[in-house]
């Protein structure tokens, strides 16, 4: 617990460092309202998906199919829109479809006992493939401005984009669920010792299934946000986004082995990752470098806990 607190303190410190360097190196435009608005837009989907994924990873599982669910939702929106559905019906339908995608992952993991890594790599390809089947390589872009402005204008009187408001509301819900509810206790117990949780009467399979369903539903919500933000429904929307989301969650101090991590840390991780990427974009860095940076951050966040542990044990060994 104390180690985690230290990790989160370090994250906040790093955030300040990134903000200050950004501010200095860009002559003050990094922390300007306009840039913060775009930073917020840029991390909206990552922040959204990171919330349920945090719970999934704390429970000792993983869901790599989230970005494909995002793409599938986007394709569904375009297809249903072309078919003449109203957006009021499309939105709930797509969220349910996302939940179904999550349920498929969850059932394969809990009922058949397959490792979630293998299952969700499979569905990563499957859902993306379905998205291509649904919409092909066309784009649907004729959505009404009342919806697409959701992704292009800030909340009146502020520089806060709407997706961030949505993410903040969900973050409070997920935070309460993880840290203040009996459900959250079960999630930690499952991640730390699944067998022990089962012997304590926790319905391990049911909890895990519900986490995958949540991840699917929220990924679909992120798909809706993404589609309206770019005013474009495409099957390849959010391609590769799972890398950034997993990196943000692990950077936030969640253990890839389960049982450890806080939602506050993950939010700091999302901000740090988003801030770094934004800063690099401001410096005209190429997207290849962005991917490399994301990958390195992922590696660092997986390595950091074991390195600190080794340092600590060395210190203990040499009194």
């Amino acid at each position: 617990m104390r180690n985690l607190l230290r990790w989160e303190t370090a994250l906040v410190f790093l955030l300040v460092v990134v903000a200050l360097t950004g501010q200095v190196s860009t002559d003050g435009s990094f922390l300007s309202g306009g840039n913060l608005f775009y930073l917020g837009l840029d991390i909206g989907e990552i922040a959204l998906i990171a919330l349920p994924l945090t719970l999934v990873i704390v429970a000792g599982e993983i869901d790599l199919s989230v970005a494909s669910v995002l793409g599938l939702s986007s394709a569904l929106i375009g297809w249903l829109w072309n078919a003449g559905w109203s957006l009021e019906t499309i939105i709930p339908t797509v969220i349910v479809a996302g939940a179904v995608c999550g349920a498929v992952n969850g059932l394969l993991v809990t009922r058949l006992g397959l490792p979630s890594l293998a299952v969700t790599i499979g569905t990563l390809a499957l859902y993306r493939g379905l998205a291509l089947v649904v919409l092909g390589d066309t784009a649907v872009a004729d959505f009404p401005a009342s919806y697409t402005s959701f992704g292009t204008t800030p909340v009146p009187g502020t520089d806060i984009p709407y997706p961030i408001v949505l993410a903040a509301v969900l973050a409070v819900l997920f935070g309460v669920a993880l840290h203040a509810s009996s459900f959250g206790r079960s999630v930690y117990a499952i991640g730390a010792n699944e067998e022990g949780a089962r012997f304590s009467g926790i319905r391990v399979k049911r909890v895990k299934l519900s986490l995958f369903v949540l991840a699917g539903a929220v990924a679909a919500i992120a798909g809706i946000v993404y589609t309206f933000r770019f005013s474009s429904a495409r099957a390849d929307n959010g391609l590769g986004l799972e890398l950034a989301v997993v990196a943000a969650v692990l950077l936030g101090g969640v253990s890839i082995f389960g049982g450890k991590g806080t939602l506050f840390g993950v939010l700091a991780g999302v901000l740090l990752l988003g801030g770094l990427r934004n800063l690099l974009i401001l410096q005209d860095t190429s997207t290849e470098v962005l991917t490399i940076v994301t990958g390195l951050l992922l590696l660092v966040s997986v390595l950091a806990p074991s390195v600190t542990r080794r340092v600590a044990s060395l210190r203990k060994a040499a009194p």
Binding site: R185, S186, Y188, G196, I202
Partner: peptide
């Protein structure tokens, strides 16, 4: 392996079967 969650606190372990 079965009785306790070793990393979790005494109070959390005590409460684990009584969460409801």
């Amino acid at each position: 392996q079965q009785g306790l969650v070793m990393d979790a606190s005494i109070e959390r372990n005590t409460a684990l079967a009584s969460l409801g």
